[in-house]
Amino acid sequence: MAGVLDSVNQRTQLVGQNRLELLLFRLEGKQLYGINVFKVREVLQCPRLTLMPKSSPVVRGVANIRGSTLSILDLSLATGKAALDDLTNSFTIIVEYNNRVLGFLVHSVERIVNMNWEDILPPPQGVGTDHYLTAVTHVDGQMVEIIDVEKVLAEVAPVSEQVSVGVGSVEMHDRTSSSRVLIVDDSSVARKQIVRCLQGLGIEVVTQNDGRQALNYLKGLIAEGKKPSEEFMMMISDIEMPEMDGYTLTTEVRQDPAMGDMHILLHTSLSGVFNLSMVQRVGADDFLAKFQPDDLANRVLDRIRTTG
Rank of each mutant, 00 (worst) to 15 (best):
L27H: 04
V136D: 02
D140A: 10
C197F: 00
G126I: 14
V59L: 08
V95I: 15
E240F: 06
Q208E: 03
Q162T: 10
K227R: 14
L201Y: 02
T69I: 15
A190D: 00
Q162C: 08
L221G: 01
V40R: 03
S269P: 02
P57L: 07
I35D: 05
Q45G: 13
G225I: 03
V106Y: 02
T79K: 13
S56K: 03
V279L: 04
D6I: 15
D238K: 07
Y33P: 06
H263N: 14
D85P: 02
R196S: 04
L32D: 01
L70K: 03
H263T: 12
K192R: 09
G202V: 11
N114W: 11
Q280C: 12
L23R: 12
H263Q: 12
V159T: 05
V136A: 05
K219F: 09
E230Q: 15
H173F: 07
L27M: 07
G61K: 03
S179C: 14
N209K: 15
K151F: 01
E96G: 04
T137M: 02
M234I: 10
E240M: 04
D210A: 03
A258S: 11
R19E: 10
R175F: 09
G225V: 09
P47T: 08
P228A: 08
D74R: 15
R66V: 03
L266G: 01
D85T: 14
D74L: 11
K219W: 05
S237P: 13
V106D: 05
V279Y: 01
E110M: 11
A78V: 11
N36R: 06
N64K: 07
L221E: 00
L87F: 13
V95A: 11
Q17Y: 09
L296Q: 12
F91W: 01
V113K: 07
V127P: 04
C46H: 05
D130L: 14
L70R: 04
S237F: 10
G128K: 07
G3E: 11
A78M: 13
T129W: 10
L249N: 03
R41C: 08
D140Y: 06
V8Q: 08
I264V: 15
I93W: 00
Y97D: 05
V139F: 10
N9T: 10
D286H: 00
H173V: 13
L32G: 03
D210V: 01
V113H: 03
R305K: 15
P123W: 03
D85A: 13
Y132W: 14
L44W: 02
T250H: 05
